[in-house]
């Protein structure tokens, strides 16, 4: 991965993908998290876009690079290319449209086909503000998430409900996986040499990057 700027101060860089059917609110979850913005008129995503934001996890600064992908089946060939190197995923469905929940299984399969087995996945039921239109119960989704061993949260990008929590939880879990990996490798995660790459899994994609020292970029 290229040298990120020295003035961009972070300890870890995690790549996270946002996936799910068209119109479930992926782009708005991202804009809410990265810019605290929401728009009813956000256009369909063509191909991929990304945004970044840094948060604190324990005493470290974690920079999330979040890739927003097109939801339509047709674009999956290109969007799946962007799964490469992802260490986290938010798999989004719309709580008011059951079909988007039914399709979660397919998305999950695709995710697991294209990414490392250690990837942190969170199932996200968005548009939870539309209580009177709910078509997917929290219990059903929770049960599914448990069965598939993914995290689960209901959000509303519109009301800014749980958006922060969802992303923070995923990033924290990734951090834990990374720290654990580092420990297993006999390293104290706090004492990793600068710029060392941590492989979260067996694939050699450089996905979770411990930041390169300030003078090396």
């Amino acid at each position: 991965m290229g040298a990120y700027r020295a003035d961009d101060d972070y300890d870890y860089l995690f790549k996270v993908v946002l996936i799910g059917d068209s119109g479930v609110g992926k782009s708005n979850l991202l804009s809410r998290f990265s810019r605290n913005e929401f728009s009813l008129e956000s256009k369909s995503t063509i191909g991929v876009e990304f945004a970044t934001r840094s948060i604190h996890v324990e005493d470290k600064v974690v920079k999330a690079q979040i890739w927003d992908t097109a939801g339509q089946e047709r674009y999956r060939a290109i969007t799946s290319a962007y799964y490469r190197g992802a260490v986290g995923a938010l798999l989004v469905y719309d709580v008011t449209r059951h079909v988007t929940f039914e399709n979660v299984e397919r998305w999950l399969k695709e995710l697991r086909d294209h990414t490392d087995s250690n990837i942190v996945i969170m199932l996200v039921g968005n548009k939870a503000d539309l209580r009177h239109l709910r078509a997917v119960s929290t219990e059903d989704a929770k049960a599914f998430a448990e069965k598939e061993s993914t995290f689960f949260m209901e959000t509303s990008a519109l009301e800014s409900m749980n958006v922060e929590n969802a992303f923070t939880e995923v990033l924290t879990q990734i951090y834990r996986v990374v720290s654990k990996k580092a420990l297993e490798a006999g390293d104290d995660p706090a004492a990793l040499p600068k710029g060392q790459t941590i492989n979260v899994g067996s694939k050699d994609d450089v996905s979770a990057v411990k930041k390169v020292g300030c003078c090396s970029s």
């Binding site: 934001r53 840094s54 604190h56 600064v61 923070t168």
Partner: peptide, 24 residues
């Protein structure tokens, strides 16, 4: 949804965030 959005004085990012940037 539109009503809520027109008054989208949603909470500011959590205090834990220290920087924010986007592609757009």
């Amino acid at each position: 949804r539109s009503q809520t959005s027109s008054s989208s004085n949603s909470p500011s990012p959590s205090p834990s965030s220290n920087s924010s940037s986007t592609a757009t």
